[in-house]
C-alpha cells in the first residue's frame, strides 16, 4: 500500500500548484480572470502533452478537439434547454463533448496514426480548418452564424444559476480538467501504457519487435488527449462564453499556444505543462499590457531557441539536476 502511494507521489506538487492557483483566485476576486486563464493554459498544456509529449508525434490540428467539444456543450444547451433537465444539461453537454472529440479522434486517428513522422503531421495539419469549413459549408448548427445560447441557459437553469455557471463553475471545471489530465498522465506513466509510449517515442520499430502493439498505444494516448481537449472546450469556451462561432473555436493559434507551453515546460514530463503554462500565461498577461499584439512574435522565436538549445524544457533540465536526490520522487 505504502509503495503504491509512493509511486503516485509526483501528483503532490501538481495538486499543490493547482491548489495555490485556486486559492489566489478565491482570495483576490479581481485576479480571477487571470487565474482562470492560467488554469486554461495548464489544462491545455497537460492535455496536449499527453499525446505530443508522450509519443513524440505533433498534431497540428489539435484545436479541432477543443472546437468539437465546445459544440458538444453548445448543442446540449441549445437544443435541450426546454426539456426540464436543469443542471443535468451541463453533464449531458460534457458527455457530448467527450463523444464528439472521441469520434473526431477516431476518424482522424484511423488515417493519421497509420502514418509515421512527417506524414502524420501532414495528415493533421488541416483537421481544424477542414472541420471548420465542414460546419460552415454544410451549414451544420447554423453554420458560420454560430450558436448563441445564453438565453437558453437562463431559461433552463434560471438567471442566477446561469450567471454562476458561466462566471465561476466554468473556470472550476477547467481546474477539474487540468487535474484529471495530470492524474491520467501519471497513471499512464506508471503503467504499461507509459512504458509503451516511451518505447515508441524513442524507436518505433524496436518497440514493435519488443512486442508492443504501437498503434494501440498511440490510439489510447490520442483519444485520451482528444477527450480532455473536448472537455476543456466545453467548459472554458462553451459554458463560459455561452456562444460558439466556428471561426473562433477552430483557430490554429491555440495549437501554437499548446506547443509553446509544452516545450517551455518540458515535453513528456508531468510537471512541465504546468510550469510552461505559468511562464507563458504570466508573460502573455504582462506583454499584453506592455507590448500589446506582440506575444506570438516574441514566443515563436523562443520555440526555435528551445528546440535548438534546450529540447528538454524547464522541468527536463530540472529533472537532470535533481537526479539522485530526495526530490526525484516528486518531480517527473
Amino acid at each position: 500500500m505504502m509503495r503504491h502511494l509512493q509511486k503516485y507521489s509526483p501528483i503532490l506538487p501538481v495538486l499543490l500548484a493547482y491548489g495555490v492557483l485556486l486559492g489566489i483566485g478565491l482570495a483576490y476576486p479581481g485576479k480571477w480572470q487571470l487565474i482562470a486563464q492560467l488554469a486554461f493554459y495548464c489544462a491545455l498544456g497537460q492535455a496536449f502533452n499527453l499525446f505530443m509529449g508522450m509519443t513524440g508525434y505533433v498534431d497540428f490540428g489539435y484545436v479541432a478537439f477543443l472546437g468539437v467539444g465546445t459544440y458538444g456543450m453548445a448543442v446540449s444547451i441549445y437544443f435541450l434547454y426546454d426539456k426540464g433537465l436543469g443542471i443535468g444539461l451541463i453533464f449531458i453537454g460534457l458527455a457530448l463533448a467527450a463523444v464528439f472529440s472521441t469520434g473526431l479522434s477516431l476518424a482522424v486517428g484511423a488515417v493519421a496514426l497509420r502514418l509515421r513522422g512527417a506524414y502524420f503531421a501532414i495528415a493533421t495539419i488541416g483537421v481544424n480548418e477542414g472541420f471548420r469549413y465542414f460546419v460552415e459549408g454544410a451549414r451544420i448548427w447554423n453554420g458560420a452564424d454560430g450558436m448563441i445560447f445564453s438565453r437558453h441557459l437562463r431559461k433552463a437553469v434560471g438567471r442566477e444559476t446561469a450567471m454562476t455557471l458561466s462566471t465561476q463553475w466554468a473556470d472550476i471545471l477547467v481546474f477539474g480538467v487540468a487535474v484529471l489530465a495530470a492524474i491520467l498522465t501519471l497513471v499512464y506513466m506508471r503503467n504499461k501504457v507509459g512504458y509503451a509510449l516511451t518505447a515508441l517515442r524513442e524507436d518505433e520499430d524496436a518497440a514493435k519487435v519488443m512486442g508492443i502493439n504501437v498503434t494501440k498505444f498511440k490510439i489510447i494516448a490520442f483519444i485520451t488527449s482528444a477527450v480532455l481537449a473536448g472537455l476543456l472546450g466545453a467548459s472554458a469556451w462553451a459554458l463560459k462564453l455561452t456562444y460558439v462561432y466556428p471561426e473562433d473555436v477552430f483557430e490554429i493559434h491555440y495549437t501554437v499556444e499548446a506547443i509553446i507551453i509544452v516545450l517551455l515546460g518540458g515535453a513528456g514530463t508531468l510537471l512541465g505543462p504546468i510550469v510552461g503554462a505559468l511562464i507563458y500565461g504570466a508573460s502573455k498577461y504582462f506583454l499584453a499590457i506592455v507590448l500589446p499584439g506582440f506575444q506570438l512574435l516574441i514566443f515563436a522565436p523562443i520555440i526555435i531557441v528551445i528546440i535548438v538549445l534546450f529540447p528538454e524544457g524547464t522541468v527536463g533540465i530540472l529533472k537532470k539536476k535533481i537526479r539522485g536526490t530526495a526530490l526525484e520522487k516528486f518531480i517527473i
Binding site: G130, F134, G137
Partner: peptide
C-alpha cells in the same frame, strides 16, 4: 441547395488529403 460551395470546397480538399494519405502516402 443548402451548401456553402466555397467552404465545402475547402473541406473537400482536407478530405482529399486524408483519403490520399490513406490509400497511398
Amino acid at each position: 441547395p443548402g451548401l456553402e460551395p466555397f467552404a465545402m470546397t475547402r473541406f473537400f480538399s482536407f478530405v482529399m488529403l486524408l483519403v490520399i494519405l490513406l490509400i497511398r502516402p
